[in-house]
Design a protein around this nucleic acid. Structure first.
Lengths: 160, 160
DNA sequence: AGCAAAATGCTAGTTTATTGCTTATTTGCG
DNA sequence: CGCAAATAAGCAATAAACTAGCATTTTGCT
């Protein structure tokens, strides 16, 4: 595992973020080295966990998932046991795509996707609100997506 | 553009979601057809917009981005003009990775990433709260990521 | 400067991507 | 039901990419 990333590594990460299916040859060309060392760097970045994986983004609407919503949950008790218990539950709910434990007025924020409003409402009523230790649940249905650039901005590394 | 997806298309999407860098040969093998028609299907899915793109997921922490937070913003006025004005602003903030307009107690939810807490706080104070028409701002710092599977669950399509 | 470790580029063999073409399958309609 | 058109699949061939091994260069340290 590398102790530190040089400017070529940063460029590699930047290019890969923009296009996860770029060929290694093209990637090498863009960052200005030949293909073999480029591939070795990518493998090393994967190995080090800096690259967590490669994903294909799909259009949820077109696939029949009409509803995206945020669900904010507050628990009654927040001992480590309570938190882990809720986490375990969250992981089992297929509607939950992303979830974070947060500080503030709520304990968890979850981004959920459902085929339709009814499915979502059933999920909230039957599953979420009825879960042990859940104090309050607030939902926010998304009306439109404003921005979707999950990428880290690798422009001015300020790092090397 | 295809009117409807068959089961092979669904399998393709499922496999690609799981591994965005799988080779076409391997993908074809998994879905049970030969490589050329498989590639043609993928291209068609891209063309139709069902595949929105390919991304590489990076470990933000390791890259020096310590802070991930959700910011919920409510506006004073919500005419279409006001909303669009705020959206335009959101798109220009590099800290904002994802943003949705939502219904409920707040108007916008944004997922933000910053190098450190100070950067984030400066962003909130200097940029967000001082933006025209912003009524209230609530922030929730993430303590840990519970789940991160942005993928649509393509298991029981109930669709074809 | 000089050595050791690490990284690069080159070459070549293998695998994959991609295209044109033919055959098979599905679809729609009489 | 059966035919014709349209659609999709498979095959073969070529171009491109992947990847391992090796010689060379660069880097980091004393």
């Amino acid at each position: 595992m590398k102790a530190r990333l040089d400017s070529i590594d940063w460029q590699i990460l930047k290019e890969l973020q923009g296009d996860g299916r770029i060929t290694n040859v093209e990637l090498a060309r863009r960052v200005g080295i030949s293909a073999p060392p480029c591939l070795r760097r990518v493998r090393a970045l994967e190995e080090a966990g800096l690259i967590r994986g490669y994903r294909t983004l799909l259009d949820e609407k077109q696939l029949g998932y009409e509803v995206t919503a945020f669900v904010m949950v507050g628990l009654h008790n927040q001992t480590e046991n309570d938190l882990v218990a809720f986490e375990t539950q969250v992981k089992e709910w297929p509607l939950v795509r992303e979830s974070y434990m947060v500080s503030g007025e709520v304990d968890f924020i979850m981004r959920c996707t459902a085929r339709d409003l009814e499915t979502f409402q059933n999920f909230i009523i039957r599953d979420v609100t009825s879960t042990k230790n859940v104090d309050h649940v607030r939902t926010a249905l998304t009306i439109r997506r404003i921005k979707d650039e999950p990428n880290v901005p690798i422009d001015k590394p300020e790092y090397f």
